[in-house]
Computed example of a mutant assay.
Amino acid sequence: MSADYGLDPRRVDPNYDRHGGFPVFEPADPGPGFARFLTAMRRLQDLAVSTNPDPDTWTDVAGQVEALVAQLDPFQSGEGVGPANRVPDLPGAGSLLMPPWIVDKFEPDEVLLRVTFSRYHVGGNDAVHGGVLPLLFDSLFGMVIHATGRPISRTAFLHVDYRKVTPVDVELNVRGWLREAEGRKAFVNAELRDADGNLLAESHGLMIRLLPGQP
């Protein structure tokens, strides 16, 4: 795997600081406790949408969660400071917002991921919610832009075609690549397949390089 999320964008975009001040996401090393925290939180998310305990249990766990919130609240930090989204070796780069993908390849020709959705991502009938896949593809498009060395860009549009039901609790493969580039425009494609190669969903989008001073 080759995935240098710590690449300083100023190396490929001398006007980076004039594009609205996006933070530079240097890799973080928060220690093994953060990985344990993420694992437990992902499991908690699954349980939060799949359990049906008695009212007293809800009251008890609510108190425990509130205590955890109180413990972490004093340590709030700005974007690009905390470890979320800055630990590329962890699922979803350490962000609970992101589906728990793992990067297998991060090169100019393509970016390859593996992802396993869980109960937390279900929209109905044990299928991944349709709104989760655009989040996955949009994140992948950003990786493709970074992997190809293009300047910082924003998503202009993203289109998703749903070909088959996306299942939970099985490992799936994701591929993204730059189809073509024209000036500020980068046309990006992506696809999601199961282990047998069946196409579950595919996406194409347009990423636009920011102008100087554009946030």
Rank of each mutant, 00 (worst) to 15 (best):
D169G: 02
D60M: 12
V111S: 05
N85Q: 08
V65D: 04
A67K: 12
I102A: 11
Y120V: 02
D4G: 02
R150H: 14
F157C: 02
G63Y: 09
L44N: 07
G130C: 06
N52T: 13
F137I: 01
D56N: 08
Q64E: 13
I152R: 13
F75Q: 11
P53H: 11
V111K: 07
G130H: 11
L113W: 15
V69T: 10
L211T: 04
G183K: 07
E202Y: 00
G33M: 06
A62R: 14
G131W: 10
D104G: 11
P32M: 08
T155V: 03
A186P: 09
S139M: 04
H121I: 00
E202G: 00
L200F: 06
R86M: 07
L72C: 10
F37I: 00
G78Q: 13
Y16E: 06
D194A: 04
N85G: 10
N125F: 12
G213S: 06
N85L: 13
G197K: 05
R119I: 02
A70P: 04
P74K: 09
F37K: 00
I145T: 13
Q71H: 14
S139H: 12
R11A: 14
V132T: 12
F187T: 12
V111H: 08
G197A: 07
R86Y: 09
F157K: 02
H129V: 03
D29S: 14
V144S: 06
T59M: 07
R179T: 06
E26A: 15
M1F: 09
